[in-house]
């Protein structure tokens, strides 16, 4: 079975789209954070696939992928901490009710 680039890109597109839709549609901050993770993973998959099929032995894509994984871990930690604080302060993690910035 021959491997081709297209399924990878398709999967990554699906992941990114699902993530974006999730971010836009769901109101729960934790779910939104999970969706951001989905987008990040989609991007990582995209980079790895492109590195494999069209970089001719280069490793830049893989290196960036590792960076993304590390940064995503850090980002998730900070975001979860923020969500904790928001919950403690407002007793609420529904994005629709947190409208202090309303102009």
């Amino acid at each position: 079975m021959a491997f081709s680039l297209f399924p990878y890109l398709l999967l990554s597109l699906v992941l990114i789209s699902l993530g974006l839709v999730g971010i836009l549609v769901r109101r729960n901050l934790v779910i939104m954070l999970i969706c951001i993770e989905l987008v990040l993973n989609g991007v990582t998959l995209n980079l790895l696939a492109l590195n494999k099929f069209s970089a001719n032995g280069g490793a830049a894509g893989q290196i960036i992928a590792i960076f993304i994984v590390a940064l995503a871990a850090a980002e998730t930690t900070i975001a979860l901490a923020l969500i904790f604080l928001i919950f403690r302060h407002y007793k609420e993690i529904d994005a629709e009710k947190l409208t202090e910035l309303k102009g």
């Binding site: 974006l20 971010i23 836009l24 549609v25 109101r27 939104m32 994005a95 629709e96 947190l98 409208t99 202090e100 910035l101 309303k102 102009g103």
Partner: peptide, 14 residues
């Protein structure tokens, strides 16, 4: 646009 709703901001940015 300035309604404080996170998702609207995101949507607009997108």
């Amino acid at each position: 646009l300035m309604n404080g709703l996170l998702q609207r901001y995101l949507g607009t940015s997108l």
